[in-house]
Design a protein around this nucleic acid. Structure first.
Length: 338
DNA sequence: TATGAGTGTAGCTTTACCTCA
DNA sequence: CCTGAGGTAAAGCTACACTCA
């Protein structure tokens, strides 16, 4: 639906009624909700729309090309990767994160040389469109974990879904890209246990990835960088959600504790007020006559010499009363208690 | 229910272009 | 006319929130 609105007699400006789209954001929905009574709402946001368009173009390009935008000027860095032992099944013990070896880059010696050679090799590879995999013939070949992706025809399947079916290695991005091009509904890839474990371990090291890390990880897992990026985004979001829940529980308990404490203090306050009304003389004394017990952190309102003595005892002070005093909080007592 | 992925948005940096002293 | 500084818009990238399937 379109509304032509003429401003100042010039070219009519068009405003679109906001219709609820299937992919509406919450803001959009809020706008819709807030505008229900009025029947329409308008938005002027050139910059954001431009950015949205830009992002859309970038994402579609990302999908087509199967890798991150070429706009990134960060040089790729090939790193020294250790082979995965086929004997051991303990993934975490075998994990090797390329970016953790960056510290050797500046060091002279074999490691630094290997790194430098690897970097040159990767730069060479980078120039080849879609050459995400390193040359198997390279003497300093890039280690790559063989994470199989199971496919059934054009559809990507999780391992469980196609157990017993034809199993083949996912040829990097090409098949995925062709999946996207058919315009069908989004297809959901299920990461293998190995891939998930690897990503989890990576997340423990860094919960955000720089482009180099992302590319290295994608390469190792035989995933598109975008998939790694999305996984980390989701992981961060869900970690934050869990943390929020934990914080909420903690604050709830704090609130309960404080409520109890507040009740107790209110009760004490009532007692003090009752005391004040029954013995107004005491309240003419300075406030320092009320002492805080260091052990139980309660205000001690001693109304007798015995109470004052117990309070003093609690405060590890000696209070000697030779004889009953008419006023338990005489200056002498105050001095003794303090 | 868990999770991979799409979308919209905002913030930041880089780059190209323009103006001016 | 050339040049460097400063301003600005556009582009690019990323993180995040929300959402869907």
């Amino acid at each position: 639906m379109e509304l032509a609105l003429s401003l100042g007699g010039d070219t009519p400006k068009s405003f679109l009624f906001l219709e609820k789209s299937s992919s509406s954001s919450s803001l959009h929905e809020k706008l819709m909700d807030s505008s229900k009574d009025l029947g329409f709402c308008m938005g002027l946001r050139k910059c954001s729309e431009d950015k949205s368009r830009k992002n859309k173009q970038r994402r579609s390009q990302d999908l087509k090309e199967g890798h991150v935008s070429k706009g990134s000027s960060d040089p790729m860095l090939q790193l020294d990767l250790l082979p995965f032992s086929p004997v051991s099944r303990d993934i975490s013990s075998q994990l090797h994160f390329p970016w953790l070896t960056e510290n050797i880059a500046g060091e002279p010696g074999p490691a630094g040389k290997v790194l430098d050679m690897n970097r040159r090799q990767l730069v060479a590879e980078e120039t080849e469109e879609g050459a995400a995999l390193s040359s198997p013939n390279s003497a300093i070949s890039t280690f790559q974990v063989n994470f199989p992706i199971y496919r059934n025809g054009n559809k990507l399947l999780g391992k469980r879904e196609c157990e017993g079916d034809h199993v083949e290695r996912w040829g990097n991005s090409s098949s995925r890209a062709s999946d996207e091009e058919d315009g069908s509904a989004r297809k959901k890839l299920r990461l293998t246990k190995e891939q998930s474990a690897f990503l989890e371990e990576s997340f423990k090291e860094h919960n955000t990835l720089n482009p180099k890390q992302k590319l290295a990880l994608a390469k190792q897992l035989n995933l598109r960088p975008r998939q790694v990026e999305v996984w980390f985004q989701n992981r961060r979001a869900r970690t934050k959600l869990k943390q929020t829940e934990v914080d909420c529980e903690y604050l709830k308990k704090c609130c309960e504790t404080l409520t109890e404490e507040n009740k107790r203090l209110q009760k004490e306050l009532q007692e003090l007020r009752a005391l004040k009304s029954s013995q107004p003389f005491y309240m003419q004394l300075p406030a320092t006559t009320l002492t805080m017990c260091p052990s139980c952190e309660r205000v001690v309102t001693a109304t007798s010499s015995a109470a004052a003595a117990s309070a003093a005892a609690a405060a590890n002070t000696t209070l000697t009363l030779a004889k009953p005093e008419p006023f338990p909080f005489s200056p002498a007592h105050v001095q003794a208690a303090s």
